[in-house]
Design a protein around this nucleic acid. Structure first.
Lengths: 210, 210, 210, 210
DNA sequence: GATGAATGAGTATTCATTCAT
DNA sequence: TATGAATGAATACTCATTCAT
């Protein structure tokens, strides 16, 4: 391992350290009530150090989403790559994949959808926006592929697969955000998994031909 | 018209004036980048005056949502009250109603779903939270009623109607937020109505028995 | 009673009404935490009305003191005018008079000494300052007279009577303020009367010749 | 000198720098007319920096008093500890000590007595209140000790020494505040030292037996 | 006179960001 | 690299005062 590479790794480790801290703080206090000082002390670093790894607060916030989007992407591609599953089974596999993504890091995925639906989006640097955009498109493209198979095989209704993928994406994010908000409004146990399950079944049913 | 009543009206007019200005500013800059000064000058009033009508910035923001929620409520009840429509037709009427609500004030309904899915929620006064909670529950209750009819008549699948209503609500808000974010990400024309139409068709199809 | 005079009286009554309210509010919240609105609503008047009777908040505050100073003046003169009392007896009468003044309106007399020792003083209009100054001087002059008698009769030490009066005035105000602050610091019953009694005895003892 | 210790000193120096500036500004404009900006610019620092060293404006104000109270305490204890002085001589030493305290920092001691007799008191944090209270009690306790000696030796009148100490404290603060207010009212040279001298002589005379 | 809605100047405080060490 | 002290711009909110009715 070269010295260059070791440095790279070290740097990556620090970034992780900061991201983990940021995740905790943001999910507890929300974006605007979290201070860089909060995050720094949670990461056991000084405020100045944060700026060696992230350009500013907003990009730190957005970078949380980047990670989960990358992970989501991989999971969706996996489903695409599985051979020997019929479209209906693939939809089942997709549901499982998305649930896994949620389980993997529920805080951040809620963050992701908040971000997507929020003012922060307007203030990100173009580079970041592009990256997020790119990743979202890939994920939705992957979902569209899965659906497309079903359309081509005459199993799913003959809509534009991308439009169907958008609907599924909306459904997924809508359920997650709505459940999150219910848990604030009612301060009671949420039923996310069950709701997601119902939502998926309705969706798959709804796009089946006849 | 008594002097009391006239004053009441005058007061209501001022509130409207502020709300209209707030809507414009918030939807342009988002919550935290909007200053009370911005809103005041948009309303051609002084900052102090805003506080005669709204306790603070957050309640001003939240009160936008209250209006649209009330309107949504009314529209959902209307659908419920219509006689002579079968459940499938009622779902169609519901779709139209919700689209109307969106058309009536698209900015605010996007705000509403942002609010519902965001940190601001945590900082509202309990009274406001309650009122929003109450109104949301009513709307969803209304939707659940519509669905319930279909379930009882054996047309819709035998799930808990409230769970189905939650799913529809999630779908509706998810589509709206996703389209709104797409319009920021891609800065291009959004296809909300079309997407919503597809979403509803899928949903209704998905909950049909057989 | 002429119409002019009636108006004058009416005006005086309003002033009293405001002063009574102001006294209550100021003594509860202190000067800077009391708002004109507080006072207005305590007086069951509107804020604007206050300004018909008092130029501004500070003069309203100061006018409380004016009243008590006038009263104090009268009481001190009474003692001066009493014939047939020897200087020692007059000092006793003076003590009683000052205690009466305190009993008459303890809140305001504390206010008076606060005012005298505070920043508000710097912000009063010259007219008001003069009036307060004048009244203080008169009171102290009156006390000096009493003491002077004792000096002339060879009973009291041969200091400048005005200096002795200053000392007595300081002692009086010091005791009152100190007791007031103790009641805040310790939140317990204060012993003002006893302390004042001791203070007076010491003072009289201290200025006796031999 | 360790690096830790150096930092500590640096920090202390900054605090002093701020305190000196605050003293100047507060004594010129009074508490409420002084802005944090004023103080910051007097200290040649930025407003934010003030908050690194003092929690808020009120604690900055109160901390001025804390210093002088600590100093006063030390001086009073010194008098107590001096051996070979009879009670009368100790009273003389006490007078000198208090005058020294006044000379050491006249502005702040006026502030202290203002504080003690004012609305600010009500708004301090309990910790601060306690500390001030504690220090005042100690000083008065020290004075009471001195007086007690005289009482025990049969030189001073047989009152409760603490009550006599309260009276002396009141006399001291009363004279200082009264002289300070006279200097505002008359805008002329004040005669504090002379008045204090008279006051002390009267007091000592007043508590002597026979 | 009386009102009270509107004003808008005034300020304590916060916090993302920088930079000398 | 890492630090963390210092910065200073930014802003919600208050409240004495005014003035049209």
């Amino acid at each position: 391992m070269g010295i260059q590479e070791r440095k790279e790794r070290e740097k990556e480790r620090r970034k992780q350290q900061i991201i983990v801290a940021a995740k905790r703080v943001f999910s507890e206090k929300g974006f605007s009530k979290s201070t860089m000082e909060d995050i720094a002390s949670e990461a056991e670093l000084s405020p100045g150090t944060l700026y060696l790894y992230f350009k500013n607060k907003e990009e730190l916030y957005a970078s949380l989403s980047l990670r989960i989007l990358q992970y989501m992407n991989i999971r969706v591609q996996h489903v695409n790559d599985e051979i020997g599953l019929d479209p209906i089974q693939k939809m089942g596999a997709l549901q499982e994949a998305l649930l896994d993504v949620y389980d993997f890091d529920s805080t951040t995925i809620i963050n992701l959808f908040h971000l997507q639906s929020s003012e922060t989006l307007k203030n990100l640097s173009p580079d970041f926006l592009n990256e997020i955009n790119e990743l979202s498109r890939k994920s939705i493209g992957g979902i569209a592929n899965i659906i497309n198979e079903g359309v081509e095989k005459g199993l799913f209704i003959d809509e534009h697969p991308h439009a169907l993928a958008d609907t599924l994406w909306s459904l997924f994010s809508g359920v997650i955000l709505w459940e999150a908000s219910k848990s604030i409004l009612n301060e009671q146990k949420n039923y996310l998994k069950k709701t997601l399950d119902i939502a998926f079944r309705i969706f798959v049913n709804g796009i089946k031909k006849n």
